[in-house]
Simulated assay, not measured.
Amino acid sequence: MYASFSVCATEAYQRKYMDFLLANYEDLRLPYPFPVAFGFIASPIFMGRECFLCLDDEGEAIGAFGYIHGTGEGNYEDRHVVQLQIAFLSKPYRHTRLFLRGLQALAKHLNELNEMVTELVFWTGIDDYAIRLFDKFAERTRVGELAVGYRLTLRHLNAYTARFKRDSASILPKSSVCSSFKEEIAVGRLFPVTCNQDREYARFVRYFLAHSDEFDERFLFFDAVAHMTVSLRESRMLLFDDGNGKLQGYIQYRMEAEGETVFIESAILSPAYRSGIQFYKGLAEWTNRVMEEQVEIHRVRFHVRADHAYLIRLYSKFARKIEETESRGRAELIFETAFDELRSYLRADDTK
C-alpha cells in the first residue's frame, strides 16, 4: 500500500482532517484542557490551505498536520514564522520513511507559498522518542514541565530533507490492510453520559461536526468549527450513548440570568433514534441532570427555525413562543417554558 500527503483545500478534506484528529484525540497527548487543545487542532482550518492529510491508497486518513502563520509572542504579525499546531501519524504508520515524506511535503508547500516563510516553530510533549527525533533536525528553544519547544529555519529544513531520496510514494506496512465490514445498528435504549472529561469533549465535538449540516444548510463547516471554539468554554453537554457505547445524540446548554434560566444551544439525535419516545426520554434525563447541577432553575429557553413546521408543532406541546429573532439571515422563534412545568409534562421523576 502507498501513502500520499494532500492539502485540505476543500470542505470534504477539512472535515476528514478534523474527524481523524478528534477520533485519535487521546493518542495526541496534548498537555492542555480540551477547549484549549481544540484551538490548536482547529486553527489551521481558519487559515484555509494550512492543514494536510496523509492518506493511504484507499483514501483513508492515517496522519495529519496543520500550521498557522505567526506566533503569540509576535502578536501573529510575524507571518514569516510558521507555527506547527498539530502533527500525528497513526501507530501502525510511525516509521521514518513516512515521517520524512511529511517533512518533504511541508517544505515543498512552504517554498511554493506566495508569501515569504523563513522559520518554523513547534513543540512536543515530554516524550523521549519524539525528543530524540526532533533533536536530529531542529534546535531546542524551551524546555518546560509539559512541553519542549523547537525552531528551525526553512533553509535548514530544505537542506535536511534534500539529504534523503524523495520517493513518489511511501510503502505502508502490510498490517495496514484490514477487511471492511458493514455496521448494523440495533436501536435500543440510550444512556446519558456527563461530558466532563477530555475524551468525552472530543467525542462530542466529533459528533457535532459530523451532523452540523443538519441544523441549517447555511451553517457551513467553517461556522461549526468556529462555534465550537467559542461555545466549549461556557457550555455544558449531556451525551447519549447506545448499548455499545457509541454516541447517538447530545444536548448542549448553558446557564443564563444568574443560573435561573437554562438555554439549550443545540441538540440532535442520530436518525435511527429520532422517535418521539427517545426524544422525550432524553429530555427528561437532561432535566434530572440539570437539577443536580443547578438548584434554582426557573426557565428553559431554546430557538427553532421559523420555517421548520414539524419542530414548531413538537415544541409547542410543552413550550410557548415568546419572541422572534434572526440568525444567518433566517427567522428563528424563541421558545420558553417553566422548568417545573417541563419536568411535569415529561414525567421526569419517573426516569430517575
Rank of each mutant, 00 (worst) to 15 (best):
E115S: 07
L157S: 00
R155I: 14
E145Y: 00
A169Q: 14
L172T: 09
L100Q: 09
S90F: 04
N111A: 07
L133S: 11
F99E: 05
E119T: 12
R94P: 01
S168P: 07
L113M: 13
L113R: 13
A147Y: 14
T161I: 15
G125K: 06
R142S: 13
G125H: 08
K136A: 08
K165S: 12
T161C: 15
T96F: 14
F137M: 12
L106P: 06
G144L: 03
T161P: 11
H95E: 08
T96Q: 15
N114M: 01
Y150K: 10
L120Y: 01
E145N: 10
M116K: 09
H109E: 07
S170P: 04
L100E: 01
I171E: 11
T161E: 13
V117P: 01
R151N: 08
G125Y: 06
S90G: 04
F99V: 10
A147G: 02
A107V: 03
T124G: 10
A105E: 14
F134W: 15
L157R: 01
F164R: 03
R97P: 00
Y160N: 03
S90E: 14
R132S: 09
T141W: 09
L120I: 15
G125L: 03
D135Y: 11
N111Q: 10
I126K: 15
A169M: 12
V148T: 12
L152A: 03
D127L: 01
D135I: 04
M116V: 12
L157D: 02
L133W: 13
K136M: 12
R94F: 01
I126Q: 03
L100F: 11
L157F: 07
E145I: 13
L157P: 02
D135H: 13
S90P: 00
L120F: 02
N111I: 00
Y160W: 14
W123L: 10
L154M: 03
L110A: 05
H109G: 03
H95F: 13
S170Y: 02
L110H: 04
I171N: 14
T96K: 13
Q104H: 13
K91R: 13
F164I: 00
E119S: 14
K165I: 05
R94C: 03
N111V: 00
D128Q: 11
L89Y: 07
K136P: 07
H109A: 08
H156D: 12
R97S: 14
L120C: 04
A130K: 07
I126C: 07
G102F: 07
A130W: 00
R151V: 10
W123G: 00
L100P: 06
F164S: 10
Y129D: 12
L113Y: 03
K91P: 08
R97V: 11
